[in-house]
Nucleic acid binder design. Sequence first.
DNA 1: TAGGATAGCTACCCGTGAGTATGGTCCACG
DNA 2: CGTGGACCATACTCACGGGTAGCTATCCTA
Lengths: 258, 258
Amino acid sequence: MPSNRPKAGSPQAPSPAAARDDPPSPWRASRERLRDREVKREAVIRAAARAFNRKGYHNTSLDDIAAALEVTKPTVYYYVSNKEQLLFECFVAGIEGIRAAFRDARSLAVPARERLKAVLRQYGTAVASEFGWCMVRAEDQDLSPDMSAHIKAMKSEIDQGIRRLLREGIQDGSIHPCDPKITAFALAGALNWIAHWYRETQSMTGAEIAEAFIEVFESGLKPRPEISNEDPTCRNPKSSSSRPGAPRSGRSRASSRR
Amino acid sequence: MPSNRPKAGSPQAPSPAAARDDPPSPWRASRERLRDREVKREAVIRAAARAFNRKGYHNTSLDDIAAALEVTKPTVYYYVSNKEQLLFECFVAGIEGIRAAFRDARSLAVPARERLKAVLRQYGTAVASEFGWCMVRAEDQDLSPDMSAHIKAMKSEIDQGIRRLLREGIQDGSIHPCDPKITAFALAGALNWIAHWYRETQSMTGAEIAEAFIEVFESGLKPRPEISNEDPTCRNPKSSSSRPGAPRSGRSRASSRR
DNA sequence: TAGGATAGCTACCCGTGAGTATGGTCCACG
DNA sequence: CGTGGACCATACTCACGGGTAGCTATCCTA
């Protein structure tokens, strides 16, 4: 599973991994071979993810993916068994980041709302990554029953994780009482939807968007009397200094979408 | 454009529109014919929407749609020019409900937050309707450039409408200051996502889900010191009687998703 | 240096599904 | 009565794309 590191522009050098002059050990070559293979396999999956991202699963042929890698279709089949598996791998690559987020958050000694926020930040990052599309839009309809079942199970795991954090937050008082099921749907929906409109060339990163969303979800739409002092400025749009941490995205309204 | 009235169970009677005994006018027959045609055309579009909804656009063949109507493919082509147009019509049918929501809300003499809520309620209803899938998932990638442009324009119109309501709400003090762009994305995302998980057989209607989402978005996650009127039972998840209208779907957490 | 694994290509197969050519039936109208 | 148009079916074309067969080249190990 390719962990989603940034890795700039052009996918992989045409010439495979320049030769180094380490002292040759008897097994080194074959190990090198295997590593190369894994690298190439990941490149295939990343190329698929980018193609799916741009043109959609069904509008992407394996010839397209092969062409993006400057190879031919059978070469792609040399690394993956079929198109469906390609989608599946992309999905797994995307969701792995979220699962990691839950693992990380579990060890945090803070109120549940903070743990939830940490998860959501990474969630947003994952959805805005190049695997976001695949993670979000991998449809059971496009997959064989067993793959579909796997994916459903993972999605459900994420969903249950969010619900659990919400329940814990309600318990420890850090989260306003609410229906965990519905709230989890709302949270996940807002974040998942990022994959529909986000493009890498955007001014905000996925994490920044997640941060801004969290701000929205935390404070709510109702005008909120500033917690500490009761009176203040609830009529003034620009006060709002409820939390200093949020980037808040300077020019808020000027840009006319997309 | 078929407005989404409920219309129970079996889609359309096999026998076309029972004959009535009005006084026959010379043009009646041909008018009747035309009406029939429109009815049948809508039936085709509804059938397509249901099929797309169940199996996805690309996994639905026109033979499937024809079979659902108990006719053959050329018959479908008699009413629509191609598959793409079918998707487009479904999209328009779905989004028309939302545009209507904005029109309705404009005439309401209430604070902007209330107008926004009214819009979101209808939004949720539309997304949960049988055209929801098409509206939400009609991808520019699957459509010719000009259709894609149309759809983008409509989506943008909805987005701008939400942003406008948010700005107005911030102005009139009924909405907590926030970034309208990001907030609109969050709201629309959460609601759009309903189309991914909602099935007609669910215990809640689309409107009820929207209502519950609104509750979440209004109050926010942070524990909220009860404001003047709304004292009661802050710790009890089941209270939340902010509005009497919402049925709230009894068993909230027991059902383990889907 | 033979033999085998690795890696990639050219050239094909074939199912599927969008869209159509053609023709038949029924009904309205002259 | 017969002509034209609305409506629908049978039966086709055809391109696209997933997947494969089989050849070739290179490098590693024996």
